[in-house]
């Protein structure tokens, strides 16, 4: 049984979710005595294939200047042809915008089943995969089973599996493939990429998030939230009310019509806990709620709660955490 991972990367680094998948993939492969393989596309990939080879038995590398930017026409064709040649049983990627876009088209090209944004995966001894994922925005979870077509495909939410540096790094075989790209097959072309946020880490991939709602009262007060985020190494999030008021950009919105996040720690400041917000952060490992209203719905979904004025609490948190950091 072969398990393949699509290795997405950005700005010279593998996406953290890829390392999470390689970590758990290696555990599965060892348990079932199967092969773990990584597939990577891009240009000047040697530093990345080196890391991939520490986890995987085989690394398939398509290295070409024309592959620098993701393009569904080329990526789908190259990966599909490789998959048809080697016939893996399982093919996984991180549930990023790129991963979801690529896999939706790739699964159709391959005529095989796909589960999106999974929060759990189990692989049976018979190589049959079961994917667990949220539906209805997270109100219900389902177990998905696949028919006999292969590979069984799934995109996995970041921060579900734990990234581990291999205790005994493998020395996987790196297979460089010269991609056969017909320029006529490329029908979409990227003209420019514009950064619209200062955050280093996107909310959907963040391990730590500090979020504020209407209780923040004004856009200027977000400075305090940003300070707290910086001390923890968190990304700043916002509720829909804040974004609708144009105090923060839509990039920062956590919630059903914004981003779904799954950090280790989510700190909600002055957020009431409307269901559309909860649906966007309910799979956070630990939730801390700060709200001066003891009846705020958010306390029904939090692990720890502080019923107090966030304008008093947040500066104290910044103080206390800075002290710990400097030790």
């Amino acid at each position: 049984m072969d398990i393949w991972i699509f290795a997405e990367h950005k700005d010279g680094n593998l996406k953290k979710v890829v390392l999470e998948l390689l970590s758990v993939g290696r555990t599965w492969a060892e348990k079932s005595r199967s092969k773990l393989c990584a597939v990577i596309l891009g240009h000047q990939l040697e530093p990345l294939t080196k890391i991939l080879a520490e986890y995987a038995d085989k690394v398939y590398s398509f290295d070409d200047p024309d592959l620098v930017h993701y393009n569904s026409d080329t990526y789908v064709t190259l990966i599909a042809n490789l998959v048809k040649e080697h016939r893996p049983d399982i093919l996984l990627c991180g549930a990023t915008l790129l991963g979801k876009d690529l896999f939706a088209r790739l699964a159709t090209r391959l005529g095989t089943g796909l589960a999106t944004d999974c929060t759990g995966i189990t692989v049976g001894e018979d190589g049959r995969m079961i994917a667990k994922r949220p539906i209805y925005g997270g109100k219900v979870f389902v177990d998905i089973a696949y028919d006999d077509s292969r590979p069984q495909m799934a995109s996995i939410r970041p921060n579900i599996f734990t990234m581990m540096t291999p205790a005994e790094p493998k020395q996987g075989e790196v297979i460089k493939i010269k991609p056969d790209i017909n320029p006529n097959m490329v029908r979409t072309k990227i003209l420019d990429v514009v950064k619209t946020t200062q955050s280093q880490v996107d909310l959907t991939e963040a391990e730590y998030i500090v979020s504020a709602g209407r209780g923040i009262k004004s856009p200027e007060n977000f400075k305090m939230i940003e300070e707290l985020a910086e001390v923890i190494g968190a990304t700043v999030g916002a509720s829909r009310a804040v974004v609708d008021n144009k105090w923060r950009s839509y990039d920062d919105q956590v919630g059903k019509s914004g981003k779904t996040v799954s950090p280790k720690l989510y700190i909600a400041c002055g957020i009431s806990g409307a269901i559309h917000h909860i649906m966007g952060m309910d799979t956070s490992k630990v939730i801390v709620a700060i709200n001066k209203d003891p009846d705020a719905i958010i306390f029904n979904y939090a692990d720890y709660g502080v019923v107090d004025d966030l304008f008093k609490v947040v500066p104290l948190m910044i103080d206390e955490l800075s002290k710990i950091k400097s030790v």
């Binding site: 095989t112 949220p134 997270g138 979870f141 389902v142 177990d143 692990d303 709660g305 948190m317």
Partner: peptide, 27 residues
């Protein structure tokens, strides 16, 4: 190509721990 085997309600968190005490100690 895929089918739903089972439905689950989302896992419920245990009841929130409200931190008691006064500022700054409760922080």
């Amino acid at each position: 190509k895929t089918r739903i085997l089972k439905y689950y309600q989302p896992p419920k968190r245990p009841k929130v721990k409200i931190i008691e005490g006064e500022l700054p100690d409760k922080i």
